[in-house]
Amino acid sequence: MSPLAKPAGWTEPLPEARPPADMAIYHLPTGTYETRAALAFRGGSFRDKRHFAASAVLVRHPDGDLLIDAGFGADVAAHVAMLPRFMRAPYRVGRTAGEQLDAAGYDRSRLLGVLLTHSHWDHASGLDSLWGTRVWLNADERRYAAEDSDGKVFRHVSPGHEIHEYGFDSRSYLGFPSSHDAYGDGSVVVVLAGGHTAGSVIVFVTVPSGERYAFIGDLTWQIDGIRRRVERPRLLSKLADSDPDQLRQDLLRMIALDGLMRIVPAHDLSSYDGIPRLTPEAAARLR
């Protein structure tokens, strides 16, 4: 399987970011499900069993916190049952994002909302344990979630959640033509990458140490898509992606950034290594 042509690496200065000194991020793992590598990226092996992550990431910011995605919810079994049979896979559940916040003594009034990279079930299921929390969606993804068959679980768990619809301005960001600066300080910047779903996004986060992260949702399901420069298998792309050509263009943009930041595909478990968990001690520092 031939890889995509290697794009030129990013050579311009990275965008300015001024993350507050007390900004931090935390990994909230909520479970995993099994998929063969052959079904995750072109050239993968059927013998290679991958444990796909279902996680949320808490972004602590003095102007209010955000969760990137929601992971598995309390009623995940019912959510899986809503899927077409060919999409169901063996899964293991842990504590929901809501349960982890509560166990750490986190003050939920700090949450500005759940910023979904997109509205598919394994990113939105956990909204059922985050009662009343706003959901951040752009107009394209809001429409997709309301109309597409793959938005069924989202439509089931979203009642009771206010939708905060954010937009993009014309300022380009790392090769993406439009962006949304969540806090106005460059620490969390959202770009439209509407290939997987109509309103899929990538969330770029810069922490006080200067380390940068790119939470790329399902642009690729495993980091192999970046490192090997490969797309999803054709049949899976046909079933899963709204615009494969757009997805390829955005994948190449991210490949050009590899090495300049930590790239975190939502379902690549190892890509979260090094992001701390939320502990009571950490939550105490957020008060």
Rank of each mutant, 00 (worst) to 15 (best):
K238Y: 11
L130V: 03
R143S: 09
D69A: 07
P62Y: 08
L252Y: 05
L239P: 06
P29G: 06
G71A: 09
D75H: 14
F204Q: 10
M1A: 10
H27W: 08
L252H: 06
L28D: 09
L236D: 05
R142F: 04
R95K: 13
L101K: 03
A74W: 00
E281S: 15
L39S: 09
L115A: 03
I226T: 01
G43I: 08
G195E: 06
G98K: 03
E12R: 00
Y272L: 08
L66S: 06
Y33H: 13
V157P: 00
D243E: 13
R262Q: 13
T197P: 08
A53C: 14
L257F: 04
W221S: 08
L111I: 00
D140N: 00
D241Q: 02
V188D: 04
G98S: 05
L252M: 10
T96N: 02
S170A: 15
G132K: 04
L115Y: 01
A40C: 14
L14A: 12
L137C: 05
D150H: 03
W121Y: 10
S270K: 07
S55Y: 11
T197M: 06
V135F: 00
S172C: 11
H27A: 05
K49P: 02
L174K: 00
L235Q: 10
F154E: 05
S149W: 09
D181N: 05
D224C: 08
E165S: 00
M261P: 08
S109V: 00
I223Y: 14
A74I: 02
Y213T: 15
P90A: 07
M261S: 12
G44H: 02
P177I: 13
R287H: 15
V59R: 00
T35Y: 10
H196P: 01
G194R: 07
S45G: 09
L14C: 10
P280H: 13
I263E: 06
P7G: 01
A8H: 02
P3M: 05
R18N: 11
G126K: 01
Q222G: 06
Y144N: 12
D241E: 14
S119F: 02
A139G: 02
S172D: 14
Y166M: 10
Q246P: 00
L219H: 04
R287D: 15
A103R: 10
M87I: 05
E16C: 13
K49F: 04
S187A: 15
W10Y: 11
Q222W: 10
R229A: 09
L236W: 06
L257K: 00
W10D: 03
V190P: 09
F215P: 12
V201Y: 01
V207I: 15
P265A: 07
S2E: 11
A182S: 09
H161N: 07
P90N: 06
H61Q: 04
T117S: 12
P7I: 04
A145V: 09
D243G: 05
H164L: 07
T35Q: 12
M1P: 02
P233M: 11
F52H: 10
E34P: 09
S271A: 14
S271Y: 01
I25N: 03
A124R: 01
R88V: 09
R229H: 11
G194E: 15
I255H: 00
D140Y: 04
G94R: 10
P62H: 07
A240N: 06
L111G: 00
G184P: 06
D273G: 08
F176L: 09
L286H: 07
D181W: 05
A24G: 07
F41Y: 15
V205P: 07
A198T: 13
P29S: 12
A17T: 15
L101I: 08
V76Y: 02
G175P: 01
K49D: 06
V189Q: 04
